[in-house]
Design a protein around this nucleic acid. Structure first.
Lengths: 337, 337
DNA sequence: CTGAAAGCGCTTACAG
DNA sequence: CTGAAAGCGCTTACAG
């Protein structure tokens, strides 16, 4: 089942079938209809290998996944769905590249021309993958905002604004003893963008409000996290408001507070940053949700644009798309007693 | 950067480079070394499109994802990681196919020869994708055990045995009023394999033990699920033991029981089936975990085998790999009062 | 408005 | 033990 079969069935030349498919040439209505009818009847789909060999376009986007940090995994799954559907809307498929093969995966994809562009997930402030791909001719789009915002096109939730919104909302509600529970240490250490920017946003917001909001890293180990919360509560000025950027930890934190006899929001208020309602299992939490569909659509658009730019050798405008945070009211926020 | 460049650098013919790469011909040590040195120095990777056009092998495995049911999503992410890494170990990459484009995605992949084989996730007892792919020449391997076990190679946790193990463990512990909280209704209605087999295993085990263990569907809505649990507890013979096959619901269930003043395991025992320790957020639950790495490795092996079989036109042995359940002891099981 | 032909980068019989 | 050549199924200048 090749383009020749379609051409024979429609009574035209193979090249005419190709032109009907690509739309890059004016075709008479009758010819076009005959070709389309033959394609539909035979169920013809162009051979992907032949097409990519000839045209140097694969219609595939590679997704470079970070090493699965324990806190990040459930989020990764949503993005894979979101990105895959967004890619389809642009006529592309999504190829998964795990960091498991030592970062060489992306280079392999670039050199063997398996994809037209790559979306990088788990972006670090200074992400080595950006420079690595520059020389290899694989355009990238970042799901995360790097330190050098002109290094590559990127899309991200405005984590700094999200953290600031959480701190400001607690402050507006009357809280003065606020703590910022950041992402897990591993993410801070590797300078994951959402991690660094969240902390930064929280600190700036606190400074702007003239309030103190010390930052504490979270832990993937619930028992260890519980110990840290105990330490906070045992301090001379225990917090009345918590902003938490570690989504997976929310249920455990609420359980621990309740075990300690603290009622939320009567004794402690809490705002969750960057999570999904589903992951909260019915907990009615005041929160800033992670806008996965918007982020997926935005970064995919950038990746597709970068891929076609690489055809025309046009310079990379280095655009960034910042998605503003939105607060969802829930039952974990109240004025301090 | 093509095979010709490597050939020139090594002072041999392009075909010789190809033979060194494939290992399908005896090559002298010197020639082989020269070629390998040139490949390493130039950073050569064969063009994927050219290779697949010529050899009809893509070294890509397609992953057909089910529609993201709310209960299943976090699990999907783990499998994507697990399958991607397993595929790499066999020299393959993983291409994501979402059900979003109406099931046509797999057919498109088959007809355009984008992949050598497909792994089907979210398998139903009578899964239409199996027959659909048979005529299209895309070999499949199922991540789930279908009703017709000879229809295609498959790998799965033994959900029937898992459910039976949970019921039996409760029974051994002294429980006689047991309830089986199955998967969400949508999964039962579409006859997802894990759902049907779990229910079946629970019923058989209960019958074998001469105990009654009525089955109740779970709900993706925590409030609705809470109402159903209330109904169970308000019945004349309230349960002392619950087996729950809806992983995402465990934290919510435990919270609801505690809100009702019931202590676990003093008043009610609970065994969770098919979840991840990470998703429990530190809850020390007696459970049967989902063996994602084993399942991923097994189904990938089957997919790769099916792909090479399709080259040699050998018949499909229709093998099935059943992974036995393992109980992890936790703090939610005790004899009834 | 349409067709014949070249060629993308590989693999693999054919030949020596 | 190695090479020259054909051809996989497309796309796209070239030609009319």
């Amino acid at each position: 089942m090749t383009i020749k079969d379609v051409a024979r069935a429609a009574g035209v030349a193979p090249s005419t079938v190709s032109y009907v498919l690509s739309g890059s040439r004016k075709i008479s209505a009758e010819t076009g209809d005959a070709v389309r009818a033959a394609i539909a009847e035979l169920g013809y789909h162009p051979n992907a290998g032949a097409r990519s060999l000839r045209s140097t376009r694969t219609n595939v986007i590679a997704l470079s996944l970070p090493l699965p940090s324990r806190g990040y995994l459930p989020v990764g799954g949503r993005f894979m769905y979101g990105l895959s559907e967004a890619a389809r809307e642009h006529g592309h498929d999504l190829l998964l590249i795990t960091a498991g093969d030592g970062g060489s995966g992306l280079e392999r994809v670039a050199r063997s021309r398996l994809a037209d562009a790559a979306v990088l997930m788990g972006v670090e402030m200074e992400d080595p993958r950006i420079d690595a791909m520059r020389g290899l001719g694989l355009p990238v789009a970042l799901l995360g905002r790097p330190a050098d915002e002109a290094a590559a096109p990127w899309a991200d939730l405005d984590w700094a604004a999200a953290a600031a919104l959480a701190v400001r909302t607690l402050h507006d509600s009357g809280h003065r003893r606020i703590r910022y529970l950041a992402t897990v240490e591993a993410d801070i250490r590797t300078r994951r963008s959402y991690s660094v920017r969240g902390i930064d946003g929280a600190r700036r917001a606190a400074a702007g409000l003239g309030v103190s909001a010390p930052v504490h890293p979270s832990s993937p180990d619930p028992a260890e996290l519980a110990r840290r919360i105990d330490a906070l509560l045992a301090a001379p000025d225990p917090p009345t408001g918590l902003a938490v950027q570690h989504p997976a930890a929310i249920p455990g934190i609420l359980r621990h507070l309740s075990r300690r006899g603290l009622e939320v929001p009567r004794d402690v208020s809490l705002i969750a940053i960057g999570n999904f309602p589903e992951d909260l299992g019915g907990l009615d939490t005041t929160r800033i949700e992670l806008p996965v569909p918007e982020m997926s659509a935005a970064v995919t658009r950038l990746a597709v644009a970068a891929a076609s730019r690489s055809d025309s050798e046009a310079p990379d405008p280095g655009s960034g798309i910042l998605i503003p945070p939105r607060l969802t009211r829930g039952g974990t926020l109240a004025p301090p007693r």
